[in-house]
């Protein structure tokens, strides 16, 4: 098939960007979207022009490294599909495809289609863990976890940290990512000891980087793993509870 791509080019965070248009002939419909970009790059290099920089690694939808705005949709038109799992057969002969990086104030563009997503790591660093130093753990079956709880935690833990939720949100909010990470740990019995402290720390770090949630729901639609926005409600509820439960903080850190 033949397609035209309008692809975003930008030297670095400080430079102005622009769209570049390329005609791509003889693309196989069985190619993945990123393989189409590989072909574009191969042709650019043969022509002596610098290839388009874009991130990807596992190319099977689990590492969360890839992520492109394709025709204005995070990860493109296919539902619950990461960019690397999208195939060219989802497009039609003669289509013009617009390819942009994630657009969010928290994610500065490093080059072309690559953005810096380190604020997602900052949210985890703030409290996205259960403190359990190596060696001291009791036998695994001493902590029974009801199957329903474990399944719900796994639904949240499936998040791949790609940042599509932020990119899709008109407010560039980080709620879906943060709530998925938080819910995973707050749901399981092992996570209870740090539950309220974790909630405050993660939510407040999130707010330092990202916009506010106004319930558009675009994040859920864009999520390649289909993470439910119910987790955002769960996080909000835990945040309110945490404000009450963290008694040592009342009247002190948060007047």
């Amino acid at each position: 098939m033949n397609v035209t791509v309008r692809v975003w080019r930008q030297e670095d965070a400080g430079s102005a960007g622009r769209f570049e248009t390329h005609q791509l002939d003889d693309i196989s419909a069985d190619m993945s979207f990123l393989e189409m970009l590989d072909v574009l790059n191969e042709r650019l290099i043969e022509a002596g022009r610098e290839p388009v920089a874009f991130d990807s690694d596992c190319r099977e939808g689990i590492c969360g490294t890839c992520g492109l705005m394709i025709n204005g949709q995070a990860h493109g038109p296919a539902e619950a599909t990461a960019t690397c799992q999208l195939h060219m057969r989802k497009f039609s002969e003669g289509d013009t495809i617009t390819i942009e990086p994630w657009r969010a104030a928290a994610f500065p563009i490093m080059r072309d289609l690559i953005v810096d997503r380190s604020p997602l790591d900052a949210v985890i660093e703030a409290g996205g863990f259960i403190s359990a130093d190596t060696g001291g753990a009791p036998d695994a079956n001493l902590i029974p976890v009801p199957k329903t709880v474990s399944d719900a935690a796994m639904d949240a833990a499936a998040c791949i940290g790609c940042g599509a939720c932020v990119a899709a949100c008109p407010n560039s909010a980080g709620q879906l990512f943060t709530s998925a990470k938080l819910a995973h740990l707050n749901l399981v019995p092992q996570g209870q000891a740090q539950r309220w402290e974790r909630t405050i720390d993660m939510v407040e770090t999130m707010e330092a980087f990202f916009g506010s949630c106004t319930n558009y729901g675009e994040c859920e639609k864009a999520c390649p793993k289909g993470i439910s926005i119910d987790f955002i409600a769960y996080m909000n509820r835990d945040f309110v509870k945490a404000k009450m439960k963290n008694r040592k903080l009342i009247g002190q850190k948060f007047p």
Partner: peptide, 20 residues
């Protein structure tokens, strides 16, 4: 020990209905 460690960290391993 690995399984104990991972469970303590909250890794959501598959469970039986009894929670084990």
């Amino acid at each position: 020990n690995i399984i104990d460690q991972c469970v303590a960290q909250g890794v959501p391993f598959a469970r039986e209905y009894g929670g084990l």
